[in-house]
């Protein structure tokens, strides 16, 4: 169970982790500045297991993998958005940050709501409002990638089988 943090549409990677902090790629350093230009209190107040909820096109902009790394290192359990920008989506799966696409859940969760998410089934429950939602499952290839723990084990596994 975690508390929901809510953000709007087109949250770009400069908001998730501003470029001024990219002179250091240490995850702890990145976590300290996560979402800083969107909500300066986020990095300080976010608790392990909290949930980041956002509108359409989350993670647009730069290809910096520092963005999902910062969110993961901030101990966010999962991101739920209406949709994701392409490179962010790829990066999140590659580094093992769980992300779900579910416009209904985004509409049905307010900032501060207590939410539980079952990553396997994609079931999202809003305990505060006593509602639940079903996120879209990943395409099979993506699921395989996630199951093997991200891109590196996946590629290494493939090479061994080849």
């Amino acid at each position: 169970m975690g508390k929901a943090w809510k953000f709007g549409h087109d949250i770009d990677t400069d908001v998730i982790i501003p470029a001024r902090y990219l002179n250091n790629s240490d995850p702890e350093h990145l976590a300290k500045h996560c979402m800083e230009d969107g909500d300066v209190t986020f990095a300080e107040k976010v608790q392990e297991g909290d949930i980041l909820v956002a509108g359409k096109n989350f993670g647009c902009g730069s290809s910096r993998e520092h963005a999902p790394i910062a969110i993961k290192a901030a101990k966010v359990k999962v991101v739920i958005a209406e949709s994701y920008a392409r490179i962010f989506y790829r990066n999140a799966l590659n580094i093992g940050l769980p992300i779900l696409e579910c416009p209904e859940a985004v509409a049905g969760i307010n900032a501060g709501d207590e939410v539980t998410v079952d990553l396997e089934s994609g079931k999202v429950e809003n305990l505060t409002q006593k509602t639940s939602f079903q996120a879209r499952p990943f395409p099979p290839f993506m699921q395989e990638l996630i199951n093997t723990g991200g891109l590196i084990p996946y590629v290494r596994g493939r090479k061994k089988n080849a």
Partner: peptide, 9 residues
Amino acid sequence: GVGSTDLAA
């Protein structure tokens, strides 16, 4: 464009 892990692969 890709991220750093895709690039490493």
